[in-house]
Simulated scan of single mutants.
Amino acid sequence: MMMNLFSIFDPSTNIFNLSLNWMSSFLGLLFFPMIFWFIPSRLSLFWNKIFSTLHKEFKMLIGAYSFNGTTFMFISLFTFILFNNFLGLFPYIFTSTSHMTITLSLALPLWLSFMMFGWINNTKHMFAHLVPQGTPPVLMPFMVLIETISNVIRPGTLAVRLSANMIAGHLLLTLLGNTGNSLSTMLVSLLIVTQLLLLMLESAVAIIQAYVFTILSTLYSSEII
């Protein structure tokens, strides 16, 4: 039962031993209609409005002393995660962000680059972050240990948070959908309404998790400057 349940997240579709599941990560490009590339169009103006809002928010979080173009990296990250989360809600499309292969590949290089830049260029600033202001001298060794551990597990928590939220909603939808064959007509109608409500919830979760992943990455980058 459990093997069949979790098999929906198994990247097993392949042709000539080449996995096709991960191609879903690039399907987002096909969802842009041709009119998007003609400027100005209503769709491009809509996305430009979203990007400008994200740019202002990320710029405020990173700070005034950030490098030019830093926010565009986080906007691209947000867009990539958002499209992949939404694509997973379509039938027969592999949810790539439900796998640690994708989420950890996004979180770990970001965290490593932040740490390398911070420790090489702002060593004193990074050491100061290990001891919160106002900590008693007796507790300083413990605080350094706790802050070090919390810093090291950051890429793991980012990756697990995104993949776990994607898996949880899809498992719930699958569990409810598998019970439809044994229900009466009245209960099937109730099940369809429940599934639609869950689908709306998952759509909101797809946006929120993309936003949370990007915001946390932005906050981590702001600590090294």
Rank of each mutant, 00 (worst) to 15 (best):
M1V: 06
M2T: 14
M3R: 12
F6E: 09
F6A: 07
S7R: 15
N14F: 02
N17F: 12
L18H: 01
S19Q: 07
M23K: 08
L30T: 09
F32H: 02
M34A: 12
I35Y: 01
F38L: 10
L43E: 02
S44L: 01
W47C: 00
I50W: 03
K59P: 09
A64P: 10
S66F: 04
F74R: 00
I75W: 01
F78V: 06
T79H: 06
I81P: 12
L82G: 10
L82Y: 14
F83H: 01
Y92D: 05
S96F: 07
S98K: 00
M100W: 04
T101W: 08
A107S: 10
P109C: 05
L110V: 13
M115H: 11
M116Y: 04
M116N: 05
G118F: 02
W119L: 07
H125C: 09
H129L: 15
H129W: 10
P132E: 02
Q133D: 13
P137S: 08
L145Y: 13
S150R: 15
N151K: 15
N151T: 15
I153E: 11
P155C: 08
R161H: 13
R161S: 14
G169H: 13
L172N: 06
L173F: 05
T174E: 15
S182D: 15
L183D: 13
L183W: 02
S184K: 10
T185D: 13
T185C: 00
T185P: 02
L191D: 07
L198C: 09
L198V: 08
L198M: 06
L198Q: 09
V205G: 05
A206V: 03
I207W: 11
Q209K: 05
A210C: 09
F213A: 05
T214K: 05
L219W: 11
S221R: 09
S222H: 01
E223Q: 11
